[in-house]
Design a protein around this nucleic acid. Sequence first.
DNA 1: CTTGAAACGCGAGAATC
DNA 2: GATTCTCGCGTTTCAAG
Lengths: 153, 153
Amino acid sequence: MDSIDIRILKLLESNARMTASEISGIVRLSVPACSERLKKLESSGVIKQYTTIIDNRYLKKTMTAMMFVSLERPRFTDKFVEAVNAEGDVLECHYLAGDFDYLLKIVTENTDTLERLLNRIKSVQGVQKTRTIVVLSTVKNNYSVSLGDGTDA
Amino acid sequence: MDSIDIRILKLLESNARMTASEISGIVRLSVPACSERLKKLESSGVIKQYTTIIDNRYLKKTMTAMMFVSLERPRFTDKFVEAVNAEGDVLECHYLAGDFDYLLKIVTENTDTLERLLNRIKSVQGVQKTRTIVVLSTVKNNYSVSLGDGTDA
DNA sequence: CTTGAAACGCGAGAATC
DNA sequence: GATTCTCGCGTTTCAAG
């Protein structure tokens, strides 16, 4: 992982469909050299996934909320994790070191669907306490750590 | 946006580098028809971005934290947003309807870098109160809303 | 929407420096 | 690492149905 790899990753971060020849032109490497680096970054696991970000507006999911959840006992964890994974509107679920056990990031249609989701979460066995915070607007939303300008690292 | 579009989006969500001919084979459409749908999904803004998810482990950023921030007055917003955007380790920033004004999702190296980041945030003009919660593990981490199986919507 | 054809560009591999 | 060449495939654009 040298600075050229970082620059390649940065380019792919901004556009995952960039071709090897496009990249080679920008980072000033030959196409085969670029292809090889690409394959290594993929096979080594540095590149976890190429994904597509879909505008939630077109899916009518314009409401974001954060939901804290506490479980009665750790033995309810498996059921809870299962339930969370089954909920398509729950994008993230983090296990916390703090007052609450979990933080869920939710993207859903409206207050109705949020209410129903909240009720489903509350009915999961072992869920003791929840606290939901509505997001008014999202100022920043990156999907991966910033990679700097490639001059360092 | 019919069910075929949904299926195409689903495929691109799982792998943004899928070619039009690969997609056409799966959704049982001709290649030109697929290409056209792709271009429409891109130009209409349904597809916001093709991005690459990089494993934070390889960037040595293995620590995740959630930071709540309150500002004294709304007039400090611009400076704060600017500061947040300049911080590479701050992946998300949401404006909240609640006790705190903002929630920041942070991915950083270790407690040292988190401490320094916290201090930088605290020194931003107008920052009144913060509360930082360390994430122990991440159970679920999707980047876009789930699209179902394409049989509906 | 389909098929089919032509032209172009890209990616993979081998050979070479 | 760079280059060059070749081969096969994907993409785009056209036609016609």
